[in-house]
Design a protein around this nucleic acid. Sequence first.
DNA 1: GCTGACGAAATTGTTGACAATATTGTAGCT
DNA 2: AGCTACAATATTGTCAACAATTTCGTCAGC
Lengths: 226, 226
Amino acid sequence: MEKAIEALSRKGPSGTEVADWIRSQIRASRFVPGQRLVEVDIIRKTGGSRFKVREALQRLAAEGLVEIEEYRGASVKGASMSEIRQLYRSRAALEGLCAADFTRIATQAQRDRLRVITQDMERCIDEGSTEMFGKLNAEFHTMLMQVPGNDVIQDLVKRLNTPVHHLLFESFYRGDRMREAVADHWRIVEAIDAGDCAAAEREMRRHIENGHRVLEALDQAMHHDG
Amino acid sequence: MEKAIEALSRKGPSGTEVADWIRSQIRASRFVPGQRLVEVDIIRKTGGSRFKVREALQRLAAEGLVEIEEYRGASVKGASMSEIRQLYRSRAALEGLCAADFTRIATQAQRDRLRVITQDMERCIDEGSTEMFGKLNAEFHTMLMQVPGNDVIQDLVKRLNTPVHHLLFESFYRGDRMREAVADHWRIVEAIDAGDCAAAEREMRRHIENGHRVLEALDQAMHHDG
DNA sequence: GCTGACGAAATTGTTGACAATATTGTAGCT
DNA sequence: AGCTACAATATTGTCAACAATTTCGTCAGC
């Protein structure tokens, strides 16, 4: 009964909820770069009012995820290869710092958890479970950022990642990317356990730059195919 | 004549222009943290319609510069000391990377310009022209970011700076901050001229962390005074 | 067949009015 | 005086209608 009332009195999604929905669509590549985001379509699919949809688009424009042109509306802003390079370099700097901080302050339990994650990732390669590999990879990186407790960096990295998020799983299929990534992770873990902040930072940067290189190769392959 | 027509047909400021205006007010400390941003006030002062003002506030909320509460409107979001620390650490990581990149790719003319700026800053201290010192300091940091050409980092740093921008000039009056800053700059310049990327990065980080320490002292002094 | 003008349809921009909520002021009571 | 309840005001949230602009299809003319 109360649920029914709640359902009836339930207003449509808020501006931020609509924005989150659009973001998720972009991350899942259901909205691709260049695609126009027509207001009525989003209204139909989210149930939000036009007002809230526009609100959401404004926020996303401020984040740089969509582009709004006068009388032409919003469209998904794709990152050029040059921008992607810049995103990755920024990420490398920020996550590198986190790795160094993690090395300084992490507890033994937290360091152990990193090892377990990396071991599980290795197993995922053998079992071919790419999706789980992706989740563990995310957990690895998230943990390194969460422990130092710098929310600003976490937020920045999340934003930097959104425009290329949909390419992540593609990259895992590229050559030996998964094995390479695990090898990178091991090097990071070793540096952390050795208490070597500088090495942890250096390895993390290298790891992320490697990820960028794979994206570049992927891009070239796509252009080559057609 | 044409100008008159242009002025007459001139619509009110766009959403981004209103947002820029609010940002500038915050940077100039005419809007202080916690202050409520009442829509009609902004409408009166900017000439923008209510729609555009709300648009602007949404964008600023996405940037994290203002906070919007249901039925209570927008207010300037002040950064806590802990957040300021996080902002500075992020800046240190990003600008550190730029310093290293600058060292790699800058031309001789660009390196010379850095020296000239730093010399001028020294003169400003003797002449007591704090404002000019601030401008030169900004040019120094901007140049180090512009030459590597990473627009993403430049944008991030600008955003990270906004919440503390109004404290910059205060910090210059604090103790020997100006002399310290110039000393830091000299060390950065030396590392760059020596072609030592790692040193340039290290010195830039130290420089920014020093800036943070001054803000911390400033904060404590304020709390001490009352 | 192609081009350009023209107009209908689609889409976004803007405004104003009204609803929902918070804030402030006031009166009455203890 | 201090407190609560209630009314008045101020402020923000929402919506629907209308204006401005682009986009797309159509058709005449060459």
